[in-house]
Amino acid sequence: MPADVRAQVPPDVVEIERGLSRISHLLSRARQHHQIATEAGVPIDRAAVPILRLLAEAGPQRPGDVAARLAVEAPHVTRQVQRLESIGYVERVPDPADRRAYRIRLTAAGREGVDRILGVGCQSILQALSDWTPQERAQLATLFNRMVDDFVRHAAERGVLPR
């Protein structure tokens, strides 16, 4: 960051950006995902995890809605859904609101797979934060979710994400 821009930004914001950059790099490493997927015994690539997680949390979705909610291009979702269908993790079902459309939903195997991935991920976080008190973890969770919600709102207002 240029010195003139850095001088205008409060030091705490610079440190937040630095921390986010570090965690983003850590979480986006393919090796990290491969380790979690291997421990969980789930044969999916890291691009499929957000789709499975969304379906687990929100229920069946149209492919376009999945793409919009994850802020990715529709062809990305189509490719991932095809892969997930081929291993039996998702299935296409008629959309009750529009017979011409379909929704994607988790199968029992998909639910089990996403649960195993999330379980291994949560255990990894618990181990990494083993010196933290439950109160510190709760405070982090509250502030982290508040920050993400504010980032999403801000991005939607700027037209970067759907509202």
Rank of each mutant, 00 (worst) to 15 (best):
I104T: 14
N145S: 14
P94S: 12
A138D: 15
R111N: 08
P10R: 10
P162W: 10
G113D: 03
Q61C: 05
S21K: 01
D149R: 15
A56E: 13
E39R: 14
P10L: 07
R111S: 12
A97S: 14
P75M: 10
D98V: 02
Q123S: 14
E73C: 00
V152R: 11
T142Q: 11
R103H: 07
Q127K: 11
R146C: 05
R22L: 14
P43W: 04
A71W: 01
V120L: 05
E112R: 12
R99M: 06
E57L: 13
W132D: 08
Y89I: 01
H25W: 09
L106H: 04
R69F: 05
I125A: 13
A67Y: 06
C122R: 15
L52D: 00
D150C: 10
I23E: 06
I104D: 01
F144Q: 13
P63G: 13
I36M: 03
S24D: 03
A58I: 02
I23W: 09
V72C: 04
D4L: 08
Q82G: 12
D12V: 12
G110K: 01
G121W: 07
R69K: 13
E136T: 08
P94R: 11
P134C: 04
A109G: 08
G121C: 11
S130A: 07
I36H: 00
V120E: 04
S130T: 04
R29K: 14
L26D: 06
E17F: 13
P63E: 08
S86L: 05
L143K: 10
R29T: 00
V42T: 08
A7Q: 12
S130Y: 03
V42E: 04
R153E: 06
E157G: 12
I125R: 12
G110F: 02
E17K: 06
G159D: 04
H25E: 09
N145M: 14
E112D: 15
I104N: 04
P63W: 01
V42C: 04
D65P: 00
A47C: 01
E15A: 15
A48E: 02
R116E: 03
V42F: 02
P162Q: 11
I36Y: 00
V14Q: 11
A37H: 01
Q80E: 09
L52H: 01
V14T: 14
T142W: 11
S24A: 05
T78C: 09
Q35C: 04
Q123N: 15
Q82K: 15
V77L: 02
G59K: 05
I36W: 00
L143E: 11
V14D: 10
T78V: 13
A37D: 03
T133V: 07
G64T: 12
L126P: 00
R111F: 05
Q80S: 11
P162T: 13
Y102P: 03
L143R: 14
R6N: 01
A74E: 02
P63T: 07
G64V: 13
V5L: 15
D131L: 06
R158D: 13
V90W: 00
L27P: 01
I16T: 13
R163P: 14
A68L: 10
G121K: 02
R18H: 12
R6H: 04
V160C: 06
P10S: 10
H33Y: 05
E17M: 14
R62Y: 02
G19Y: 12
Q123C: 12
H34E: 15
A37N: 01
D45E: 12
V148C: 06
A74Q: 10
E136V: 05
H76S: 10
L70Q: 07
G121N: 09
